[in-house]
């Protein structure tokens, strides 16, 4: 495994958007079929992205574009560090940094829609972060490592040890991926909330960068899910497909919640499924060095 990480990290920079865009494309097709529609072509996200970068729009202020570009840079960096095999706990904190840049870009416009979107995004960050941290800590507890590849090659059926944490993670991924019922800060596809919430004042290339960063992010978020199913090829494929379908399914069958609910539900789930899984796991595995 040694030495190959750097190539995977480079491949991620090049191919990450491809994979992320495809995930998004499949999502849109599946969603359309669930609703009895034909839906867009599979490559629709790529057409959208290409178009966004051909638009010409003036920024709202001089801070907006630099902040959005920083968001993209740090979102990519997060993924690079992740696939380079750095400490994944550190990486989650860097992920926060990337999100902060986006939130600040929205705040800087001062428009009511962007501001409320940014407020809600922060609230969502508060809601999902504990669960992600607890999930990583639990992964460390099983695999005794914070390195992506070491956990991956530990070949343990982690989902059997940490079922609650897996479910909790899927729950908060719904927020991170801007899916219903938690698409309260900015929404995807043909949905609208607060005009476009966080991205209300971003058009053309600015929105393109946000979208691109989102694709990069979704790749390593799914890589994170992969860690739970890395014991065999079959479980990896089944696990990822089930998770992906579950997320789309939930997106389609749930209605948007209020922000107060989003926070309290997420924390409750974190406490019950996350901490509730961590503590028994800790008690059982205690003593085994």
């Amino acid at each position: 495994m040694k030495g190959i990480e750097i190539y995977i990290a480079i491949a991620y920079v090049v191919l990450g958007p491809l994979l992320g865009g495809l995930l998004d494309g499949f999502d849109r097709v599946i969603t359309a079929r669930l609703q009895g529609r034909v839906g867009p072509p599979l490559l629709q996200p790529f057409y959208d992205l290409r178009k966004l970068f051909t638009r010409r729009i003036r920024p709202v202020n001089r801070l907006q574009l630099p902040l959005i570009a920083s968001h993209l840079v740090f979102a990519v960096l997060t993924g690079v560090l992740f696939f380079y095999g750095s400490d994944i706990l550190l990486i989650i904190f860097v992920l926060t940094l990337a999100s902060i840049f986006l939130v600040l870009a929205a705040y800087s416009t001062g428009s009511p829609f962007s501001t409320i979107g940014a407020d809600r995004e922060l609230l969502l960050m508060t809601a999902y972060e504990p669960m992600i941290i607890i999930a990583l800590v639990a992964l460390f507890g099983v695999a005794k490592s914070f390195n992506f590849y070491e956990i991956l090659s530990s070949a343990m059926p982690i989902y059997l040890y940490l079922p609650g944490i897996y479910l909790g993670l899927v729950f908060v991924l719904q927020m991170k991926l801007r899916k219903s019922p938690f698409d309260i800060s900015a929404s995807h596809h043909a949905h609208q909330e607060l005009v476009m919430g966080l991205t209300a004042d971003m058009g053309g290339p600015a929105l393109g960068m946000v979208e691109l960063a989102h694709w990069y992010e979704s790749v390593y978020l799914f890589a994170l899910v992969l860690l739970f199913f890395s014991s065999s090829w079959v479980s990896a494929i089944v696990g990822l497909s089930v998770t992906y379908s579950l997320i789309i399914f939930l997106d389609n069958v749930t209605a948007r919640v209020k922000w107060q609910r989003a926070l309290s539900i997420a924390w409750l789930v974190t406490l019950v499924a996350g901490a509730g899984n961590l503590i028994p796991f800790y008690l059982i595995s205690r003593g085994t060095p």
Binding site: R28, A32, R55, G203
Partner: peptide
């Protein structure tokens, strides 16, 4: 146009509420 019968998304259309994102 957005409903399953006509399905504007076939053409890649998205109705955004935001002029800054619309063509």
């Amino acid at each position: 146009c957005l409903t399953p019968v006509y399905d504007a998304e076939r053409f890649g259309c998205i109705v955004t509420g935001d002029p800054k994102q619309a063509d």
